[in-house]
């Protein structure tokens, strides 16, 4: 029976959503107030709520108890409720990464700097006799990749736009050198990010292959589970490679280029790529359980949808990287 047979079975009451909501509220409150105690209690309550929900409603096996629950009502009526749920979750994820990206683009367009620079160029022409037009002077301040040429800019503006324009004080840049300037400096510096991009795409494909194997009713159960396990192990290995290279790359940027989180550009880079890395890490935790389940022969076509829903999350992590990689590493 499925839960959409509500005429026969009605709705059961559950405290799980309220418990989970209370836990989330405590977690966020504790987080914003930097209180480790409230944060920890919030996480514990949230975990309790999710566990209660899991035990009460989600047998996940498609055959026992209530089976795979289905949504009813607009707009998700008839869909598997976990599938609708994961898409709603991804909806919130879009907002998270959209916020990071919007703030980053605010800094990267750097129009404050350009407008101020144009004013300075005009001032240099009017008062210091700088040669050329505003556009010509501004053009001399950047190379073809929009990296700042401080000395050339100082000469072009007869000294008006000097290092104090780009550096508010020693060690504190007013104009923020971004990670891409260091990462694209040579191929070997870019290599970890490039490998990671290929690794994530490949890992998305191995998740698809694991799902296809799990859904293949023609395979013997042990063969099916072995295939699923192997594809998921490949995904785990690629995800782990991603995190290792990420940490290596951070170490390289911090120690070789002094590109730290203390600058505006650095905080955007590390918070965004760090948030993405946490998503990868969480994905690896889930996949470790999935591998264990394959190892004990737990996957069959009736419960393969769990891999599909996990895959949606994993593909979204890949999707976020599709935006992060060119924006933060190449541009």
């Amino acid at each position: 029976m499925s839960y959409d047979d509500h005429d026969d079975h009605g709705h059961h009451g559950s405290w799980a959503p309220i418990i989970a909501s209370l836990g989330t509220m405590m977690f966020l409150y504790g987080f914003s107030e930097a209180s480790m105690g409230i944060t920890a209690i919030g996480i514990a309550v949230l975990t309790w709520g999710l566990f209660t929900w899991w035990k009460g409603d989600l047998p996940f096996d498609g055959s026992e108890k209530m089976g795979e629950l289905e949504a009813y009502g607009t707009p998700f009526g008839g869909m598997k409720i976990r599938k609708a749920g994961i898409w709603l979750f991804l909806m919130s994820e879009v907002m998270i990464f959209g916020s990071f990206f919007g703030a980053y683009m605010r800094m990267r367009t750097n129009w404050n700097t350009h407008w101020t620079l144009r004013d300075k160029a005009q001032e240099a022409i009017d008062t210091l006799g700088a040669e050329g037009t505003v556009d010509e002077i501004v053009k001399k301040c950047f190379d073809d990749h929009h990296h700042v040429k401080e000395e050339a800019c100082e000469i072009a503006t007869n000294g008006l736009v000097n290092s104090s324009f780009w550096w508010s004080e020693p060690g504190v840049p007013a104009y923020h050198h971004v990670a891409a300037e260091y990462i694209t400096a040579d191929f070997m510096t870019l290599l970890p990010g490039a490998i990671n991009t290929f690794a994530l795409i490949l890992s998305s494909f191995t998740v698809v292959l694991a799902l296809k194997a799990a859904k293949n009713a023609d395979l013997e159960p042990n063969v099916r589970n072995k295939k699923v396990r192997n594809y998921l192990v490949m995904t785990l290995a690629l995800g782990t490679l991603f995190l290792i290279l990420k940490l290596w790359e951070w170490n390289h940027l911090i120690h070789d280029y002094d590109f730290t989180i203390s600058t505006l550009a650095g905080s955007f880079f590390y918070v965004t790529t760090g948030a993405h890395g946490i998503h990868v890490f969480v994905g690896l935790i889930f996949i470790t359980y999935f591998i264990y389940k394959a190892h004990i022969g737990g996957w069959d076509p009736n419960n393969a949808q769990s891999i599909e829903y996990y895959g949606l999350y994993w593909h979204f992590v890949d999707l976020a990287w599709v935006v992060i990689f060119p924006a933060f590493y190449l541009y």
């Binding site: 707009p75 998700f76 869909m79 609708a84 919130s92 879009v94 907002m95 959209g98 919007g102």
Partner: peptide, 16 residues
């Protein structure tokens, strides 16, 4: 509906 669900937050991202 799933495409619309996924696309919906992009409205806010664009506004942002």
């Amino acid at each position: 509906e799933l495409t619309y669900t996924f696309a919906f937050p992009f409205i806010f991202v664009i506004i942002l």
